[in-house]
Design a binder for these strands. Structure first.
Lengths: 340, 340
DNA sequence: GAGTAAAGCGAAAGCGTTTTCGAAACAATT
DNA sequence: AATTGTTTCGAAAACGCTTTCGCTTTACTC
């Protein structure tokens, strides 16, 4: 039989209340009884049952993780995984476990809010990049603290965190401009992707600011932030024969896909086409040529998200939102080395 | 105020027991009252509290996910992520949520078994590739059903699932042999990695079977299954000037790292050195040259794990273990195209 | 020595479910 | 009319913990 508080209490000759108080760092317990009870706990291998605790205290110690949106994002995308990984580490240190909600359409499962209420998660991290869907909106406007990653949440008690996407695009354009490129193209994720749209807008704005001509044929959308989108987009361009001289891909994976298409057609990077990606995932360092990219600080994104959520849960502090500065990482796909 | 069973019960003019029975598909409730209660639930937006349910029924509906081992494995490794992704989908359909335990050393958190007991997970999936550490061993021999991915669990109520690692290595050797390579090298993960060791053994066995000479200098270990291991291993070889003609890397990421080192020194693949990887992660298709690899069926691995665990939890069926057949995927890094 | 404050502890009422077991109502069988 | 069997329901006891509030006991002040 597994020991519970009652067992411990009677073994130590104290009441259940006292045992509970010790577990929860109440101050009205003497050092003496505390050490005695603690010893007995160790001895019997006492392990509290979280569900009972959650029931009584309404605190589950759980943070819900939601990958929202149909196609743009998921577990296997390096950018989001790195953010979540960093988040997980940080929130783990702060004493929370992570509950992953599947975004599969499960007949028995309700919407996100219901599932959050049912499992009593104390807060949620929602990763997306798509537009806010209704089911997420409900959650956003619920009393459950939420923080969006690449998703602009604005309910009370919600906040978000993302890189400055306008600036991301602007940096790409600027770099191309400085290197003398004039015919710029853009490959985005699906038009449903808010993030991708913002970057596109930022890209156009920057081009105008530099007095660059915008060719609509060189602005294309894929389906997702994954590799295939870039591959297909570039293939289409190649088939038409109407190619930009430099393209900014709204994710490194997309850039990788574009590079693959280029290589298949024996076009060289950056000589024929220069490429800048976005995210700075690990693979970008390893491809040939190494990918110039606009880095998002994934580690900081995750950490910040963890702290913001923690504050919101525990101090009721109004969550603000953070927009992080991106950073240009120059490697070889942009043609810098040629210019030298 | 959030509606609970008592609310529903009084609104419907029945007892709490009856409401509970309806939630749990008991048969001793008339169709009539059932529909009435169900209607009221819908109307009031009733959502059951899982922790109360878990407390009363001892069923949490949770599966614990553990990335064990220090260095070899983690959230960001494409192979394991894909397995987990597939597992998550399948187990989600079966009605379970996923609870991720962090492997960080958190002062307040206990060992894995304690945390599993505390959160009342009904089963665990443990992803590793390392040797079984004590804390995992305890869990393995506990009454909690466990299934290891790339980790040979053998406690009662435990099982595991992995690819046939001997065969993985044998296929690599065989392919090299057929292509006429005689000087074969191997890059593994750390010597702590059980999986890597088995592959190494399989590699040697196969070489002997083909009458190939084994040069110990060409068998090296890295630190992890990640890219850096391959990069460093290959660099060391290059520095000594004593290089094998063909190398098998025990993960695609390692292969990618090796390729990077090669490219940096202007050695060409496969002309100077042929490479075969292992896993068949997505990136392998996209690198230059595309990586020949031994594919592990990640989707099947995850699905099977889900079903095995489900059976164990619900039918008490003795978990067996599965060893999946690997598959050689020929691309260009092995030199097949040259031979033609 | 009277009065006040602080420290240490426990009784008891929850928290929202599940599950067992018996009661009631009605039908079917002798 | 008595017995048995079915169906449908509810009372009540868990499940293991938290938290409030009040009671002692001890220490301190004047």
């Amino acid at each position: 039989m597994r020991a519970n508080m009652k067992t411990i209490a009677s073994l130590a000759g104290v009441s259940v209340s006292t045992v509970s108080k010790i577990m929860n760092n109440y101050t009205d317990v003497s050092e003496e009884t505390k050490t005695r009870v603690l010893a007995i706990m160790k001895q019997t291998g006492y392990i509290p049952v979280y569900s009972a605790r959650a029931l009584a205290s309404r605190k589950s110690g759980l943070i819900g993780v939601i990958f929202a949106g149909e196609v743009n994002v998921d577990f296997t995308h390096p950018f989001f995984v790195e953010v979540i990984n960093s988040f997980k580490k940080q929130i783990g240190v702060l004493g929370y476990d992570l509950l992953f909600f599947s975004n599969e359409k499960i007949p028995t499962a309700g919407d996100y809010l219901s599932r959050c209420l049912a499992s009593q998660v104390e807060g949620c991290i929602i990763i997306s990049g798509d537009q806010v869907e209704p089911s997420i909106q409900d959650l956003d406007h619920s009393p459950i603290p939420c923080i969006g990653v690449d998703l602009e949440l604005n309910g009370p008690g919600s906040g978000y965190i993302m890189s400055d996407n306008m600036k991301i695009a602007a940096k790409a354009v600027e770099h191309f401009y400085v290197l003398g490129y004039k015919e710029l193209g853009y490959i985005g994720s699906s038009p449903d992707s808010e993030i991708s749209n913002i970057r596109k807008q930022g890209y156009m704005n920057a081009m105008e600011a530099f007095g660059l001509q915008i060719n609509p044929d060189w602005f294309v959308s894929g389906e997702t932030f994954f590799e295939l989108s870039g591959y297909q987009a570039m293939q289409k361009w190649i088939r038409t024969g109407d190619l930009p001289r430099a393209v900014f891909a709204s994710s490194d994976l997309i850039a990788l896909g574009a590079m693959r298409a280029l290589k298949e057609h024996r076009l060289s990077i950056p000589q024929d086409i220069a490429i800048i990606g976005c995210d700075d995932i690990e693979a970008s360092r390893y491809v040939d040529p190494p990918l110039t990219t606009i880095r998002q600080n994934k580690d900081k994104l995750g950490k910040l998200a963890a702290h913001m959520l923690y504050d919101m849960i525990n101090n009721q502090s109004a969550i603000s939102s953070f927009v992080l500065e991106p950073e240009l990482i120059v490697r070889e796909s942009c043609g810098c080395s040629l210019a030298l």
